[in-house]
Design a protein around this nucleic acid. Sequence first.
RNA 1: GGCGCCAUCGUCUAGUGGCCUAGGACAUCUGGUUUUCAGCCAGAGAAUCAGGGGUUCGAAUCCCCUUGGCGUCACCA
Length: 461
Amino acid sequence: MLVRTRIAPSPTGFPHIGTIYQVLFDFAYAHKYNGKFILRIEDTDRARFVEGAEEIIFRSLDWFGLTPDEGPVQGGDFGPYRQSERLDIYKKYAHQLLDKGHAYYCFCSRERLEEMRKEQERKKQSPMYDRTCRTLTEGEIKAKLADNIPHVLRMKVPDDRKIVVHDVIMGDIEFESNTVDDQVVLKSDGFPTYHLGVVVDDHLMEISHVFRGREWVSSTPKHVLLYEFFGWEMPVHAHLPLILNSDGKGKLSKRHGHASVDYYREGGYLPEAVLNYLSNIVWNHPEGKEIYSLTEFMQLFDITQITSQGARFDLQKLNWMNQQYIQKMSDEELLTKIKDFYKDRQLDDILVRKLLPLLKTRMETLADFEKLTGYFFAAPSVAPRSQKEKEIIVDLQSILSDVTDWTEQGIFVALKAVLEKHSCRMPVLYYLFTGEEHGLPLPQSLEILGKETTLMRLKQL
RNA sequence: GGCGCCAUCGUCUAGUGGCCUAGGACAUCUGGUUUUCAGCCAGAGAAUCAGGGGUUCGAAUCCCCUUGGCGUCACCA
């Protein structure tokens, strides 16, 4: 069987990191078995549609190197890959359901539905459609249709049945059909709901494995039923554990800035580090390694071995991982990444190259470059904070101007003399030169800055 | 509330009946690297394996109950 996985985001806002987390598994699994990874845009909610969101999804996937094999951009034999362009298909299948007696017209207004739910809640019942329209006679239906009363199609959930959801990481989960709602499958605007959309498209696009978040398990019985109604074989399902907010309260949400993919790109994170982190929170390398490549993950992971607990998002650990990746990078690679990250800044290659060895162990993200190297590009705004510091500046000027050997070692000796004379500590000098109390090693920094610039800046204090 | 899932250091986890007086990583703290900060090295503290019952010669591991957390209950996905 050919492995085909898919991600089916809806263009309703910025891409969520949870989407990338899911794609990681889609992508890895598909490519592990020489299959295909498909992108399908589920734009069936016109009210929540956001212009441009689709392009951001494409871009985000590309940034992570998780480009789909088939999709709206790449094309493929199973298109169109946008649900809004497949309306006829859903209509056809919805009516097939109707003909087979697995669906029925519902003419209930939103207001009535709303009231019904309120009433149910008042009676402490779980809100569910009361099946009023299930008993409509053929004549009544025809009359309402003729009157152009807005309507939807609902699936007819059978009574008193066990519905079993097979999940490769959770095992079999049993549901009682009486707790399953007569879900709307086709909306009054002719668009399908998610439930009809996924089932039809996953089948038509020959999806073999469905990886999605745990939040979907409770609607899976509906999908099981739909597959059964159509007489189709159901793809293998794996519901991935949720990524939780760092306080453990709830799914990683928009309130936490780092739910957005942009947060990582703009924050100077490396896509491979983010992917590494994402996989590591629910999967362990057999040798206990924490740092491993996507390729290695792809080769070694087994979907059945995924943890079954939701995991809190730990930014500190991600930061550590990102730093590990930066540290292990070659100078050339790092230079490229930095220049790319600051592409609007016209950075001087020669200067940056000199800085790299100092930077490497001090950058958690590419964005740290700016904080760490500011004083190389412009004089920091510093003013002596005491009489003592004024005296130190005077001594610094005279001692430094006498340094003939302007190297790390020569500068170090000179600085040490000042330190000893005033019996002060390094952070004081550091502040005078950079405006910060700590950062890159001072002697090396001054060597790179150059004698002339160093003395000139000192004079301006 | 109904239904479903989950439960090992602060966090992510290893662990599938004896190798566990519970291992690793992040974080924290201490010392070293003969004066910043990182990095690196060494070390420390940190989990009565949610609680209670079983099963067993033996349980973090199997079963039951309780508790707690999370998810979900739309013409949203």
